[in-house]
């Protein structure tokens, strides 16, 4: 069963008309197994992959790479991924790192869409003063925003 309705698809396609450059979605998941062991593994990994595949299909500018967290541990380390499901949003214009941990559903799904759009733009939609302030930063800044599904 699809996560996105026909109407969702239509609306997301309209949002993606704002995409300027290509955006790569690098997704880390577990190896999918037909066995389900309660309390073990990653309960949302498969659903998140399916959702991302549906999103990816809505624009030629989106690429989706799916990696197994354990098998591709070196790449996971490069991206600083310590838990799954994890999504890294990259593009030629993303200078830092933009990551999602957990399934982006409800309100967070719209945040994901706007992050994809921002990643495809040159300026990420920030005010000039913010860009100036950010360009003065020369130490690592790790922003973590904790959310719950809505």
């Amino acid at each position: 069963m699809a996560f996105l309705s026909d109407n969702d698809r239509k609306e997301i396609r309209e949002v993606f008309e704002q995409l300027h450059g290509d955006v790569k979605l690098v997704y880390f998941t577990e190896r999918e197994s037909p066995l389900f062991i309660p309390g073990q593994g990653c309960p949302t990994c498969k659903d998140t992959r399916m959702l991302l595949e549906e999103v990816k299909a809505l624009s030629d500018k989106l690429n989706l790479e799916v990696h197994e967290f354990v098998a591709d541990s070196e790449l996971a380390r490069e991206h600083g991924i310590e838990r799954i499901p994890a999504l890294v949003i990259t593009s030629d214009t993303v200078k830092g790192k933009v990551r999602y941990f957990g399934m982006p559903s409800g309100y967070e799904f719209s945040v994901l869409l706007s992050s994809i759009v921002d990643a495809s733009q040159e300026t990420a939609g920030l005010a000039e003063e913010s860009i100036v302030a950010l360009s003065g930063i020369s130490t690592d800044v790790h922003i973590q925003v904790f959310v719950t599904p809505t």
Binding site: G80, K95, G96, K97, V98, R99, Y100, F101, G102, M103, P104, E108, V111, L134, I137, S138, T139, D140, V141, H142, I143, Q144, V145, F146, V147, T148, P149
Partner: peptide, 8 residues
């Protein structure tokens, strides 16, 4: 220098 994470 910035890493931004959203964590469910």
């Amino acid at each position: 220098y910035v890493t931004a994470d959203v964590i469910e």
